[in-house]
Structure formats: C-alpha cells, structure tokens
Design a protein around this nucleic acid. Sequence first.
DNA 1: CGCCGATATTAAAACGTGTCAATAAAATAA
DNA 2: TTATTTTATTGACACGTTTTAATATCGGCG
Lengths: 360, 360
Amino acid sequence: MSSADPAATPSPATDGRPVGINEVAAHAGVSAATVSNVLNRPERVAEGTRRRVEGAIAELDYVRNSSGSNLRSGRSDSIGLVVHDVTNPFFTEVARGVQDAAADEGRAVVLLNSDEQAAWQSRSLRLLAEQRAAGAVVMPIDDDMADLLWLRKRDTPWVVLDRGDVGEDLGCSVTVDNHAGGLAAGRHLIGLGHDRVTFVSGPLGIEQCARRLDGLRAACEEGGLDPDRAVRVVEAAQLNPRSGEQAVEEILAGGPRRRPQAAFCANDQLALGVLKGLGERGLRVPGDLSVVGYDDVDVAGLVHPGLTTVAQPKYELGRAAMRLLHSELADADHRHQRLRFEPELVVRGSTAPATTHPTL
Amino acid sequence: MSSADPAATPSPATDGRPVGINEVAAHAGVSAATVSNVLNRPERVAEGTRRRVEGAIAELDYVRNSSGSNLRSGRSDSIGLVVHDVTNPFFTEVARGVQDAAADEGRAVVLLNSDEQAAWQSRSLRLLAEQRAAGAVVMPIDDDMADLLWLRKRDTPWVVLDRGDVGEDLGCSVTVDNHAGGLAAGRHLIGLGHDRVTFVSGPLGIEQCARRLDGLRAACEEGGLDPDRAVRVVEAAQLNPRSGEQAVEEILAGGPRRRPQAAFCANDQLALGVLKGLGERGLRVPGDLSVVGYDDVDVAGLVHPGLTTVAQPKYELGRAAMRLLHSELADADHRHQRLRFEPELVVRGSTAPATTHPTL
DNA sequence: CGCCGATATTAAAACGTGTCAATAAAATAA
DNA sequence: TTATTTTATTGACACGTTTTAATATCGGCG
C-alpha cells in the first residue's frame, strides 16, 4: 500500500538518472532478473529477498516503465476503443462499460473518435497498430471491413460493437437486435391506433437505422397495414438534436391534414430535437403527435413529457465487448462469437392513443 | 498516401517474422539508420533513397512500433486525460476539445475516470507514470496536490482543468470564473424579484460548488439582501440527475409557505433532476419556481421549458488545456500560466419574474 | 562422503528504435 | 591536380524490460 500512495515516499528520484529496474536491483543487492521476478512472479522469489526488493522499490519510488516491457513482449497492454463521437451519450455509456471492464484487468483505454469518417477510422486503427495495442473495441462506421482485416492481420484482435454483419470467423461482435427494437416501437404505436408514422432516420447508410425501419415496417404488416402507406421516412443529416429539430419541417411538410400521428426517431438525440421543434411550432406531444426515440439515454426520462423509447443495455454492451476481447486475449481455445442483446421498449409520456379525428 | 490506406497493399506481413525497421532496411538495400531518418528527418536523406525506402515501407506494409521509439526517447507521445466521469456531458465536451487538439499533433489520448475518488485518481496518475505519458490534462478531485506533485517530479507535465488554486509555479491551469457565474445567476434571479433562493449544491467539498455559492451570495448583498436569509443551501450527494430529483424533497421541506422562489443548481444535471422532481409534484416551472442550472450542456436547450443556465466554454476549455500542455512540451522558454474563461448567463424559459404572492 | 533433486538466483541475450560519431562520397575551392 | 567543405550514409550502442538456460545453495538420502 505504501507504494500505492505516491506522496508517501520522499522520492529520491532526484538522484540524477531515472530509476529503473537496475537501480532497484543494485539498491537491494540483487540482480535485475530478481526484481523482475518480484514484479511478475512473486511466488518464485524467497520471502526475505522479496521484502528487501519491495523495500528498495518503495524507497526509490520506482515505477515500471511499460515501454520496456511492451517492447520485450511485443505488445502493449492497453486497448483501443473507437467510437463515432464521445459527445454522444449513447457512446459514453458504452465507453464507460468498456473502461470499467478494462480497469478490472488493470488495462488503460485509448479512446479515439472516428466521426463517422472512413479516413479517421483508418487513422485510429493505424495508431492502435503502431502502439501494438493488445486489442480493440470498434464501432465501425460502415460495413467495409478492410481496415479491420488489416488490423487483425497484424495480430491485433478486436470486437465489433453494434454491427451484426461480421463474419463469425473474423472476430466477435456484440449487437442489439435493431429489427426487434423497431418492431417493438412499431407494435406500440400501432397498438395505440396510429396508422401514419414518420420514421425520422439518420443517414440511411447506417445499418442500425435501416434495420430499425425494417422492424417498424414489419410491425405494420403484422398489424394489417401497408408499410408503404403507413410509414414515411425522413432522413436527417446527422444523429444529433439539431438535425432532429431541422427534420420537423419535413415531418410536417404535407400540411396539417397529412400530418403523421407519430414520429419514430432512430435516436434519442434526434427525438429530443424533434420534441423541441414540435414545441416551438405549438404542437403538443403526445396530444397532436406521439414521439418515440431509441437508446434510452439518461435525459429521455428527464424531459417532459418523458420520452417513450427503445432501451439498449448500453453499459452492458461495453462490458460484454471487453469481456469477449479479454476471452480472446486470455483463453487459448477462444472461439469467436456473436453476442446479441434484446432491446426493451420503455413507455413514457410522449406516446398516447391516436385521437380518432386529429386536431384539424 | 498509399501507406495511409491500410488495405491498399497486399501486406506480405505473413513472411513469418514481423517486419521492423531492419526488414525495411534490408529490402531497400539501405541501413536501419537511414530508414529511421526517412521516418523522422526526411530532409536529411537524398531524394532517391528516400523514395526507395518509402517504397519498401509501403510494400512490406511496415508500421512503426511505438514501444521501441518510446523506449529510446524515454517518453511516450500520448497524453493522459483524467476526468471525473466520462458519462457526464460536461466532461465529454471537454474531452472532445482535448482529443481534437491532441489529434492535431498526432497524439492519442488515454482517457481515465477518477470517479471523484482519491484512490482512483492516484491509480490513474500512476498508470500515466508507467506509460511515461508525454503529459496529462487533469481535473483534480480536490485540492490535494500531492499526486500531481509526484507526477511532475517524474517529469510528466500537466495542465489542471477547472480548478484555480494551483500555484503558478507548479503548472498551468485553465479555469472558468465560478464566482462570476454564481454572481450572474444571482443577479438574474434577484433582478426578477426573487428573494428566497435555494442553492442546490453538489458535495460542498467540491471547490466549484462553493465558489458558485459565493457568487450567489455576493449577488444578494449587491442587491441589498441578507445572504443568510435569502439563500438556503441543499447539498446533493452527487452531481447527477438522480441526486437532483432527490433534492427536491429537501427543497420543499419547509412547507408551501416557506417554499423558495427559485432554485439555483450547481450543475445542469442536478437542475434536470430538479425539474423532473418538481414536475412530478405538480409544481410548475417557472410559474411556481424558477430554476437555473450551470454548464449549458446540450440538453439544457432541449427540455421544456428551456433551462436558464450559466454557460461554460466546455470545448474551448479542453482545447486550451491541450494547447498549454503543448506549449510546455514544445517551447523551451515555457512559463506556466493561468487561463481563465468567463462564463455567460443563458436565459431560457425556466426563469420568470417572481409573483408578488406565490401560489399559496 | 558424494550425489540428487529442489529451490533461489543470475548472466546474458533479445525486443525495435533513435542518435552520435565516424566514414564515404560528392561538390567546391585552391 | 589536391585540399577542403558539404552532403549522405552507416555501425554501433543505449533505452528498460523479460525470459531462458545456467549456476549456486541447501537439505536429504544412499
């Protein structure tokens, strides 16, 4: 414990040269190899010497230089996490899960943003390759696996997050069933009597959005509605509140009589923007329009009315990804696997039964 | 550019042994030193050989091993960022600023959570010491500088974020004037005629909270009110929405007739929780109670009513911190400095003039 | 007494890179 | 031509660690 409290020792590090394993060895009257053993396999060294070495470590305030050990072992022990944007609360929850799980193993996490741009994703993975990262947890920006294949060829294993179409032989993946999520949201809306729903999508190239839409359409068919008539799609530029706000204009484009009864947003961030935009135009939620989001970020439960949304186990997603990565790093007989979580509909105040004759 | 696109080359990395600077040298018919020069000081190597080496690099799909170079140089080139909690949107904005600025210099950022616990902060800094991080940006959990002093003694420079009481000789700091923020909020409320304000604080040990409270009290005196009568303090357990929600009970504890006219929260997160708690008890904002937050996180503008709050230049905070750190790393004649930003009051719908006779 | 196995310790050799001093080659000056 | 400077290249070492194979120590057993 004394070495855990950095300030406890007077730190004679001002001896001039930095203190390494050799200085410790000299100070303890022992060889460098023994010091290394104390650090890595304490059971192999006799009680007495071990204590002497530990004393020297504390007294000299020695802290291991991981560059050295990484060089020797050919691998760093930190892991990379590549997300679209740290600023998005969905990702931060996931990140937190990854970090906590990594911390359990004493690993540091290098956090990189791809900004949903291929070039940045490449740069990030390249950086991890340079660092010889132990592994990576990646949320790919699209289904082009070239970068990831390249990384794996360099013996850096990874786990793909939130993207299902990874060949099982390439690596593990952790996903949430987006189709099921869309389906649940759709059933809920249709159950409330809505038959004109606008899907506020992010860029349609994003697989998650497409699948959620699929789910919504499936719910229509299930409910005896023609998806092509019941569902209209509005594509927002980005998955953030501002884009949601801007999308409102398009949602209402058809004039009051063609106004949809509900908006299902690909994202809570979008949904929050939509809520705001509707409010500014004097439309009431859920009176005039029901709104459903996706993710169940913290604030979804804080706004008024509370946002009905499809919850994803964000933190668990991150933890699970890290767990799989750990398995691949530690278990000799590791087999890649796809882990799929089920989303869960959380009903709050932003959805209500359709009024038979909407306010005209 | 060809080497920037990882997948472009067929990658003969399957030659058995990993390809290092030596393999490249051999393949280009040149010495290892020359390859190193091509990588680090291209101007010192002749046009022809340089191209030959670059060809070999591309062909062998070589990527530098930073363990090696870090070991040699005694320093890693990545920088550490220690925040309280990635999950808090305030920190993510700051983090984004740091990351972007770091990316400009090609540096990676190791993100660590301290969870506001001394032990975790120590662990984080220790980890950075092990990595021989180039530097760190730290939001300290309290005013105990022992950890940071220790780190600096190990030649790892840092910039302190959001905490003003750092001796100028120890290192740079970037802060926002919390007193001014509290003052601005206080003036606003008093200007609206409120004379019973509850300050919803986080743990009072946190300097930021204390200063903001000071500012509020100063505003009272300025307005001819006795701070001890006009301001009541409620201490929430943590700076998150849940704590805010729980604090509502205490805010209203005095019964309807002693109900405050306004709540000034140390944090937007707290404020959001307070808004929710009030809503659930049927109280209207701002009709029955005005609410002010602090930080101006994204959602502050999205909830209804919009949250009046004290905005901090979060992203700029992060960028500035990284810029100072860079200066310390690069400029030989660096002098530590304190950078102080001014907060700005953003008035939205959650505050309104006091009713002369509150709803009784 | 000599031998054995077990236990503790260590010398030495990597790992991949950057830098310094030294050499080779070429260009310029004399 | 030779002497001198400039320009390109290189050999060799150091950085701090881990690991392998070898050595030293010791108690016990034949």
